[in-house]
Design a binder for these strands. Structure first.
Lengths: 364, 364
DNA sequence: ATAAGTTTTTGAAACGTTTCAATAACTCAA
DNA sequence: TTGAGTTATTGAAACGTTTCAAAAACTTAT
């Protein structure tokens, strides 16, 4: 092996450069430069202990001089992974999801993975399209908040070979990993807070009952009320249901018009999520209503801005960042463990009490 | 060509399935099933007019039966594009950026591209790491808000072959496409609003002058004041500068403590972005201060929640969604036009007046 | 110098898809 | 039927990287 004395003079002067015909440097260029085989270059990249130090340094030098950047597609074709994970969410303008993405990104970055972000806006067709694209890309896994209750297309996708972790959604029967928050419990602690504050007639502004989260949060209300109704209870707690078509600020604003004339004995409003609650607040303020000086308001999610609105919103805190982080870690575990068993991580929500529910007088 | 009578009996009954050894179906399996060549299958997928209808239908049937899903890595290796674009932003918890991502995603989805989201949190090292990963993945382009003023690593990245569009940042001298908002103009219209309302002593809470947007917005203030000072002006307008270390809610809250004792002749505060302004509001509210009932407040960005805080924030509106959408469209143009010339799209901001700056009495 | 054991390097083949020159098949007119 | 022109299909080779059996090189003991 004659020493490479650096006298071969191609592309003298500059540090990094493509090959002479303008193409990006490949492993073949590095091998030629270092006067070793393709396999040796690959070993330096992937199994450096297997290469003698002198050879290894020569190859590393050649990598630097040629400006070589590995081609993931070639590696992937030969059997390597894509080092990419998809995340499929409902709505990227809801801070609930952007915090979740942040958690997932942080976890994946630690392992050198890229995160492909996809928003379905609740469309099953768009979800299918994204899953198809992700499958063509051979992503190593997908974190997904389903667009609807029907998991069939997600199960099919998973059965075709891509690991899936459900986020904020349980699997039906252990066929997938999932990360959730106990929304039944969340509903319970919200309503309990209001009941303990003396409220006896409470309006529940919910989203579509076809959405599982809406069903669970409402179910939590029932669980809490059952626990409150001891045999010798002397007062009666009533919950009035109002369903809106979507869990958005706009839907909250729209329903606020109906709240202007609500039964005066209603002393509290619980909303199925913070965007709804914020929309209600906004709509009432626009109408010049002072309803919220009389009536307590509780939201659900505790998104970043809930503490910033006025009155600051009491809300059931969901650990959004932790959801994303835990989901990504679960997926990474599944990727590294061939004998992986699916399981669920369930977070417990807690209530953050702020101005919107404090010191409202309940009716005598 | 004997007809395929469906009597070959492999995997009978189910619609889609992998090959007999559990691997995903490849183009080779489709070709075998349809009794055509690999090239014919590829033509059906990529140039269907070139295939006779009877053959084409047979191949499409085989694609369905085998459950074939194209492998992008193989296509990419042979010379096709990755159908993926990276977007590199500063902070995914700032609604300014999440709206921008949304615009980019919508534009790219129309052309069948996936969006890879990367947050730098202002770190140049992290930016370098992401650029490297994106390069290995051979993304077809990158939309990027630079982590700092030094564009060197981004230019190098671009020079190595990946198209780049700067977002909310100008290129230095036409070497890259960019999409920006005229922050000088934005600063001007904000301060003009305050001056027209009669304010003569105005505090400017800015971020680090090392950040170009902060410099531009402040420069806009000077431009507007020059225009206001006619030779025979009888009153004097004074702007007092206060610099904070970061453009965040937290920094705004912290500086609000210093605002408790400001010169009473200051009748207006302009903040370099909405997060700062919201932090100031929050901090003042926490301190029980009624400063904002006397002093006008103006922010910059008009993020989604600025209308929801109290008082609703007057703010310079940046078209965040449009920034992202336009950047992605610029990139797509560059990809489809081999004679592409770089250019810049510059949006003009406009002021949205809300409660925070209305009807404050300026000092006599 | 020779043999045995260990370390290092090599290079052929695989991966899935696309491309295009060559071949085969088809159609129509004489 | 034959020949010319057109359409449709084929299949070899390329793309960049990894893998692993085989070969080469090195080290140590006799």
């Amino acid at each position: 092996m004659a020493g490479d004395s650096g006298a071969d003079g191609d592309n003298s002067g500059t540090g990094t450069h493509p090959t002479k015909d303008g193409k990006k440097a490949t492993i073949r260029d590095v091998a030629k430069k270092a006067k070793v085989s393709l396999g040796t270059v690959s070993n330096v990249l992937n199994d450096p202990e297997r290469v003698a130090p002198a050879t290894r340094n020569r190859v590393l030098k050649a990598i630097e001089v040629t400006g070589f950047v590995r081609n993931i597609a070639a590696r992937q074709l030969r059997g390597g992974g894509s080092k990419a994970v998809g995340i499929v969410i409902l709505d990227s303008s809801n801070p609930f999801f952007t915090e979740m993405i942040r958690g997932a990104e942080d976890a994946l970055r630690q392992e050198g993975y890229l995160l492909i972000a996809c928003s379905t806006d609740g469309s099953s067709d768009r979800e299918a399209m994204y899953l198809r694209h992700l499958e063509e890309h051979q992503v190593e896994g997908v974190l997904i908040t389903p667009s609807n209750d029907d998991l069939d297309q997600i199960i099919d996708f998973h059965d075709r070979g891509t690991p899936v972790v459900l986020v904020d959604r349980e699997a039906n029967s252990g066929e997938l990993c999932s990360v959730t928050v106990d929304d039944v419990k969340g509903g319970s602690i919200a309503i309990s807070h209001l009941v303990e504050d003396g409220h006896r007639k409470i309006l529940f502004v919910n989203g579509p009952m076809s959405i599982r989260q809406c069903r669970d949060r409402r179910a939590g209300v029932d669980v809490a009320l059952k626990g409150q109704r001891s045999p010798h209870a002397t007062d009666w707690i009533e919950v009035i249901d109002l369903e809106v078509p979507s869990l958005s600020i706009a839907a909250g604003e729209e329903i606020s018009l109906e709240l202007l004339n609500i039964d005066p004995s209603i002393s509290a409003i619980m909303c199925a999520n913070d965007l709804l609650a914020i929309g209600v607040m906004r709509g009432l303020a626009s109408s010049g209503s002072d309803l919220l000086s009389r009536v307590a308001l509780v939201g659900y999610d505790d998104i970043t801005f809930s503490s910033l609105v006025s009155p600051a919103l009491t809300s059931v805190h969901q650990p959004q960042y932790d959801l994303g982080y835990a989901a990504a870690r679960l997926l990474l575990e599944e990727l590294s463990d061939s004998g992986h068993r699916h399981h669920e991580i369930r977070f417990t929500p807690d209530l953050v009490v702020r101005e919107s529910s404090i010191k409202k007088s309940s009716p005598a």
